[in-house]
Design a protein around this nucleic acid. Structure first.
Lengths: 227, 227
DNA sequence: GCTTTTTTTTACGTTTTCTTTACGCGCCTT
DNA sequence: AAGGCGCGTAAAGAAAACGTAAAAAAAAGC
């Protein structure tokens, strides 16, 4: 028999964590707990659970940030729990990458059934969040970039730029898309930003910045990270 | 523009079908309707929709049977609609293979968001569209062309030219159409562009550029990409 | 409040790509 | 057989896109 799937419960209320543990463990799940948004992100990144149950009502920054951060590198199924019942919230969260949404109070059997549905779906692409490109390691989960095992310090804009490329590693990302994702939809015309930050990234993580092996230019189209 | 995803609505109430059609068509879905369980099964089998919205409150045998029958041969995402709110029902339906469950009255934006989630899951495992023409591979998503597995560098215009031919692989594309799609409607007279770029493409992706096997000339008409 | 870091602005040299121009070949018509 | 026509090839000039450096402005850290 396999060891049960690991499921991460992110909730600040101890009572809720206890209830979930009591409900999930008899079903064969191995329950991991996190009591804050920060801890949730950390656990998700380090433990790589097969499922996540996320309470929106977290005190420190809210669960929404957790979902966003997880979705930067992982496709793990996330079920949202919440007390409120606002429509716009549901829609926004689902579009942000949440896979299901339950309002408290919920029925435990329904929760279990919905988790089974998520498990059924989960067999899809389990992408390795640690990207290796030659001498380069990009860990989207840990927000860390290494070259030859040594950590490289990137500014936040540089990291965002690299992140966009890494998420579509091997594929061309259009200038428009990069600008939109890094600088926002209002800056899609400032294509010179791309040249400047491409140069800065190459200076930091290419062996020979004038002969880039990783960050490749596709003239007239965009940039591409060699995978 | 692609034709929208086809979505099958199974519901005996005409008012509900009308509401769903009115909500879904503006989103780009192509709506198929069935007013009974029997019709639902028949439509699902013959039309193979990409999504199914199924009302449980059907008179003839109930929607449960529809779900069971569909699951015998298809993994199409099914979203259940129902008036009742009994826990055991939800659990049973979800375990029977339903992918989501909404109770009436429901909010249309939430329905749409949940349908988007189901679409996301359905597309997760699907490989990207790869156009194959003999030893040639054209990956439209990655903006990349390979020959015998080896990447070929194309300029933006060369790529556009090839893309037009590839979209109608095997068929003749007229000079007019190529010029219009690559250089815009104002350049339909510059037929010499075609000769230049056809030559460049042949130089890059034919084994013997003077004996083209892929990019064939149809004298007086246009060009054709052999499949 | 000042220093340090990061982002944005500005400017210019270089490379790549696109367009223009020119010429050779084969074929059909006259 | 000469000349027009459509196609293929080559190479030059024009234009666009890219890379780099450095200063000004803004933000972050102490």
């Amino acid at each position: 028999m396999k060891p049960g799937k690991r499921i991460l419960v992110v909730d600040d209320e101890q009572a809720m964590r206890r209830l979930l543990r009591a409900s999930l463990e008899p079903e064969g799940y191995q329950v991991l707990e996190a009591a804050s948004a920060e801890a949730g992100i950390r656990e998700a990144a380090s433990q790589r659970p097969e499922l996540v149950v996320l309470d929106l009502g977290l005190p420190d920054g809210g669960g929404e940030a957790v979902l966003k951060r997880i979705r930067e590198w992982s496709q793990v199924p996330v079920l949202i729990l919440t007390v409120q019942d606002a429509d716009e919230d549901k829609v926004r969260l689902l579009d942000l990458g949440a896979d299901d949404y339950l309002t408290k109070p919920f029925s435990v059997p329904e929760l279990l059934a919905r988790l089974r549905v998520l498990e059924r779906h989960a067999n899809a692409g389990a992408a390795e969040p640690l990207l290796r490109c030659g001498d380069l390691e990009i860990d989207l989960a840990a927000h860390q970039v290494k070259r030859l095992g040594q950590e490289i310090k990137l500014t936040s804009t540089e990291y965002d730029f690299l992140k966009v490329l890494a998420r579509h590693a091997g594929k061309v990302v259009t200038q428009r898309q990069i600008l939109k994702e890094v600088w926002g939809p209002n800056s899609v015309e400032h294509t010179h930003y791309l040249r400047i930050y491409a140069a800065q990234l190459r200076k930091k993580l290419e062996a020979d910045p004038s002969n880039p092996k990783h960050i490749l230019t596709e003239p007239g189209v965009g940039y591409r990270l060699r995978g």
